[in-house]
Design a binder for these strands. Sequence first.
DNA 1: CGGTCACTTGATCGTCTTCAATACCAGTGG
DNA 2: CCACTGGTATTGAAGACGATCAAGTGACCG
Lengths: 245, 245
Amino acid sequence: MTVPLSRPLVLEPNSAADPCAHCDARHASVCNAIPDGDMARLAAAAVVMEAAPGTSFINEGDPANYFFNVTRGTAKLFKLLPDGRRQITGFVGVGHFLGLAVSETYAFSAEAIDHVRYCRFSRTRLRALLDDYPLMEKRLLEVASNELVAAQEQMLLLGRKTARERLASFLASQSRLGVSCRHPRTRFSLPMTRGDIADYLGLTIETVSRTLTKLRSEGLIEIPSATEVVIRAPGALERLAGGAA
Amino acid sequence: MTVPLSRPLVLEPNSAADPCAHCDARHASVCNAIPDGDMARLAAAAVVMEAAPGTSFINEGDPANYFFNVTRGTAKLFKLLPDGRRQITGFVGVGHFLGLAVSETYAFSAEAIDHVRYCRFSRTRLRALLDDYPLMEKRLLEVASNELVAAQEQMLLLGRKTARERLASFLASQSRLGVSCRHPRTRFSLPMTRGDIADYLGLTIETVSRTLTKLRSEGLIEIPSATEVVIRAPGALERLAGGAA
DNA sequence: CGGTCACTTGATCGTCTTCAATACCAGTGG
DNA sequence: CCACTGGTATTGAAGACGATCAAGTGACCG
């Protein structure tokens, strides 16, 4: 599990145009706390950047000078132990905000899974924005609260669920992703590798693979390709995820 | 692991006096965001309550009508699986704020370990307070951010650390508790049971007991009584906690 | 095609769990 | 004072789940 050095690409110095107003992530992001008329101000504080697959754009321990807002693609957040053991703390998609830490340094690393585009805000400029737009601070608090709830759920998974239950939980949550509302999808693709899934669920690659195979042989899911999943028995999967025998 | 029904005790309707100004937790809590002159307003929004050891004052799934601020004692937060498996997501002490969830219901339960005293704020009144005191909202965001960092650290522990490392991490973090600053304590007492520690670290009671015994026999710690710990080799313990062989 | 990389599958191993017995301690009542 | 009780902690032996080690498969790509 090596962590390639990041060499992020700056796309635009952002003096031109009005990128924030047409941002793909605006509807899903905390940026929607800023009124339409003030988009220029928001744009001035942001720098649009890209990270190629496999490159990291936040490194645990580095000075936390920036906040980030993912506008495209998927990234993984993780922490490492000195001997290389890795725990992925989350996968983040469009609209997700990163780097809320109060600390002087980042508490985790972030690495692009597919092609990731993101906005980078300097801490001081974001601070100024938050001071001027209390609504944005409120939205951030909401987001942070929700992440806290998700983190607690993940602790339950890591501390007390079996491998089967972990995979079921993971698949169930993936099936709910991106769906703005209503019913979960029964078919979707996984952008991350088995290794990523393993490090997210506190398992090994082999156990992930074996358990998926088992779920397939039991008819709960189908695996058309390594990156595609079809949920055949949503109810049973959900029950399994919840820890019911 | 049964969860006794809670029967919290209301101490004061809070029309009298000025309890918030002399609150033990004021220095450690988000309440210090409210200026001294407006203490009466804060007090009017709060109801002081108590929970006896072993009683729960938040139940996962209940309507989240209140926010809480612990002013005395220690409580444990946890989530349960249908078959009784329990994951303790944190121990909270004086000054700790609870119930930030945006959701309609609580995502976890809270149970008093020793005698707990806490302030209860109705959601609507707290909302009004936050609207009037943006500084308090800022403080809440800070607190939430820090908890998020702690949660990620705990995920690393639960997903990737060995039993030895988990206990070492736990003891190291306990040694840092309550010390307003500077150096960690080398002697402290554990208010929680072995069962609580086990459910916090994703282990069993037996493994916790065995591992503590091992650490003692290796001279890293002493255990004068079941609830007392002395750190004999802080450096080695810290190294172990960090995952270094 | 040969090479790499991700994934799958098999066999063995080890850490932690489970099951069980014992020790310990505080509280209660004979 | 001591026996009894219930809860908590420790210790031991056996077992299981997931990890580790190892081999094999398949897809993609130069």
